[in-house]
Design a protein around this nucleic acid. Structure first.
Length: 678
RNA sequence: GGGCCAGUAGCUCAGUUGGUUAGAGCAGGGCACUCAUAAUGCCUUGGUCGCGGGUUCAAGUCCUGCCUGGCCUACCA
């Protein structure tokens, strides 16, 4: 069979944050598949890129006081570093902010124009006059027009569940500046997807590119009704590519992101003297996308539509996976389960995660749970106890002797395992890594009893039986090598170590068919440490601390100094306390007071139109910019006091001795401006 | 509300086109071994296969109703 030509992609990580263990499900899943294909002798190219455009990047760059280019460059470096650390091996890792991508976007655009798929329409959208930008739904909050709940997001109400457009919100506020947004109209460009309905419906149902559940889902949700036009442009300012024939408008980030797959391929082609046509316009090439279920419709409707308009190859298969949970819960910062790649690597070996994910991954769109105990058990029993143990219990006996010149009788173990290679390969091919791992562990379960019964530790004491000893080690080490070959897509480092131990690198699946004989055996080196459950727990703790970097109180050995400095006040009744009306407030504006040494002028919102101007003595501890948008607790019924700089209509609650050591009271997520503190 | 998927030993799961006393790994118990990263081997305790009907000579496996959980999505595919 001639080698297949396969192009593989993973979804492009957004340049707005670091890689975490949830992202890694996909990159590990894809990398395993790619490594497997390469071992099978297929031509397989794995491309990816950073997804760099959009409002979120623009805003963040602005907040951090640097250019978008500087932000995405730093993020890309971090992403690539994390991927490399997890042995995720791209053939090319590009960026959507590249010349190649800009040019390809123009080509796709031209094709869509030529097919008469683009139409222009005015869209009314909220505009932040202070930040001078149009606001995506999630950057607007206000009062729900249905139930009057305050501080609701721009698209739907979390209280009553009703949906609306951001412009319908009562008293909308920009979360960027706190300013009241204005409704502005601007022309937008749309792709008329409905014109491609026949093609899409057929592709979804009959191409074989989609799992059946996904095909059903699309048929039921999107293809049931008329396909809505896809708003594909954004007016300036926007970080992205300006549309050549529509000055002042930019391609929406989801237009140029999938084209980034092509741009990344092109970079690879240029470097390797290949032609892009061979990879994107050839029936000889398979195209496999690996994505998460959250971006299903971009890859199963819009993207095939775009490719169709270009007349290019359609995806051979879109592999969709579910989300990651940790100990049965959604990942979250507060519980420390949102673990970044970096935090993981401080304590744990990437091989653990690769193997654990492999034992859990199936071709279905199912969520996957990472149970901490299960994680440790699987890694320790399977990899250390069964697989690596085979080598570590025999390699040093074989060190002096090397492997036997001919492969000895092993009761058929090697032949059986060689035969199992086909079934294991099939499981990898189908992305059923869970099955592949089970099959491999079955082999490992047969190998250890062999060693047990052969008793090499007794043989080595008898000079007459050195030949037998060598034979036993030859069998054990060859069985180990077979396992290392089968696990190589998942555990490339183990494969490499095995290659070093036995003097022949592992590169091809076929190597599992023939035992190694007559070669020297290198001194055994530790291959994989056991996982300590404490390391996992510590990793979770580390992830929590990232959330509140100031708080590092491992033993809670707090000083008694603050109480000495300011002893407790005399007892009061609850009625006394009730006189103080503490309220949650949002800082909607903050500015320096030029004449004042210690004061900042804050504008606090109590929800609705209620605003208070408060002067707070926190200048040395806080910059005005970092306060805007955050929640504070204020004394709302304090008698207003006239100050030199104006009227102060309350007090912001804060702790600390003063100067730069002032700490504002915050409040947990969910609280709303105007709520009283009881 | 609708759709999809799942519900098999304490835990994670296998169970092929329905066919003899339902399996594995881990965990638990006992014994053995000491080469190995408190690793390994042997033996062993655990299951009314979510519940109730039905089809069949025969159902964990097919049909149906219900219950529970997860995901998706909303006023009905």
């Amino acid at each position: 069979m001639s080698p297949r030509r396969i192009l593989v992609t993973s979804a492009l990580p957004y340049a707005n944050g670091p890689i975490h263990i949830g992202h890694l499900v996909e990159y590990i899943q894809t990398d395993i598949w790619v490594r497997f294909q390469k071992m099978m002798g297929n031509r397989c190219v794995y491309v990816c890129a950073d997804d760099t455009h959009g409002t979120a990047i623009m805003i963040r760059a602005r907040q951090e006081g640097r250019s978008e280019e500087a932000l995405i460059a730093a993020m890309q470096e971090a992403h690539e570093r994390d991927f490399a650390a997890f042995d995720i091996q791209f053939d090319n890792y590009g960026s959507t902010h590249s010349d190649e991508n800009r040019q390809l976007c123009a080509r796709f655009w031209q094709a869509l124009r030529q097919q008469d798929l683009i139409v222009q329409r005015d869209v009314e959208q909220l505009f932040d006059p202070e930040a001078e930008t149009f606001l995506a739904d999630r950057f607007v909050r206000g009062t729900c027009p249905q139930c009057q709940a305050t501080n609701q997001p721009g698209d739907n109400c979390s209280k009553c569940g009703s949906t609306y457009r951001p412009a319908e919100l009562i008293d909308p506020r920009s979360t960027l500046s706190g300013a009241a947004p204005e409704l502005r109209s601007a022309p937008h460009l749309f792709v008329q997807l409905e014109k491609l309905r026949d093609f899409l419906a057929d592709w979804v149902a009959n191409s074989g590119a989609l799992q059946s559940e996904t095909a059903n889902y699309l048929a039921g949700h999107f293809l049931k009704d008329e396909l809505r036009d896809w708003d594909i442009s954004r007016p300036a300012p926007y970080f992205g590519f300006e549309i050549p024939d529509s000055p002042g408008n930019y391609w929406y980030v989801w237009f140029d992101a999938p084209i980034g797959y092509v741009a990344s391929t092109q970079q690879w082609c240029q470097r390797n003297g290949e032609s892009l046509e061979d990879w994107w316009q050839s029936d000889e090439t398979e195209i496999h996308h690996f994505i998460g279920k959250d971006i299903t419709y971009f890859h199963t409707l819009f993207w095939p539509g775009m490719l169709k308009a270009m007349g290019w190859s359609l995806p051979t298969k879109v592999h969709i996976h579910g989300f990651l949970t940790v100990d049965g819960e959604k990942m979250s910062k507060s519980t420390g389960t949102l673990v970044t790649a970096e935090t993981y690597l401080q304590r744990l070996d990437p091989a653990y995660l690769r193997y654990f994910y492999a034992t859990k991954l199936t071709p279905r769109v199912e969520d996957m749970d990472l149970g901490l105990e299960e994680f440790a058990e699987k890694v320790n029993s399977d990899l250390v106890g069964k697989v690596v143990n085979l080598a570590s219990r025999t390699a040093k006996f074989a060190g002096k002797l090397g492997l036997s010149p001919e492969y000895p009788d092993d009761g058929g173990l090697f032949a059986q395992a060689a035969e199992a290679g086909d079934r294991i390969a099939e499981a990898y091919e189908e992305c059923d890594y869970a099955r592949a791992m089970r099959l491999i562990m079955e082999l490992a379960d047969r190998a250890n009893p062999y060693v047990e019964h052969a008793r090499p530790w007794e043989l080595r004491k008898d000079p007459e039986r050195q030949q037998e000893l060598q034979d036993v080690c030859t069998v054990a080490l060859n069985l180990f090598r077979q396992l290392a070959i089968y696990l190589a897509p998942v555990l490339p480092r183990l494969a490499q170590q095995c290659g070093e131990l036995l003097g022949e690198p592992i590169t091809r699946w076929q190597q599992s068919r023939t035992p190694l004989v007559g070669t020297p055996v290198a001194p055994f080196k530790h291959m994989l440490k056991r996982v300590q459950i404490e390391d996992l727990q510590q990793m979770i703790e580390d992830s929590k601390e990232q959330d509140t970097p100031e708080e590092s109180t491992p033993a809670f050995a707090d000083s008694d100094q603050p109480l000495k400095d300011e002893p407790l006040a005399e007892e009061i009744t609850i009625d006394d306390f009730a006189k103080v009306d503490l309220r949650v407030a949002r800082v909607v504006a903050a500015e320096h007071v030029p004449e004042a040494n210690k004061l900042l002028k804050l504008t606090l919102s109590l929800g609705g139109e209620e605003r208070r101007q408060v002067f707070a003595g926190i200048k040395a501890a806080y910059e005005p910019e970092q306060l805007v948008g955050r929640m504070v607790v204020m004394v709302a019924n304090l008698k207003p006091r006239k100050m030199r700089f104006g009227l102060s209509e309350g007090m912001v609650a804060a702790a600390g001795p003063g100067k730069s050591e002032v700490f504002l009271l915050g409040i947990d997520d969910g609280a709303q401006p105007g709520q009283r503190v009881h």
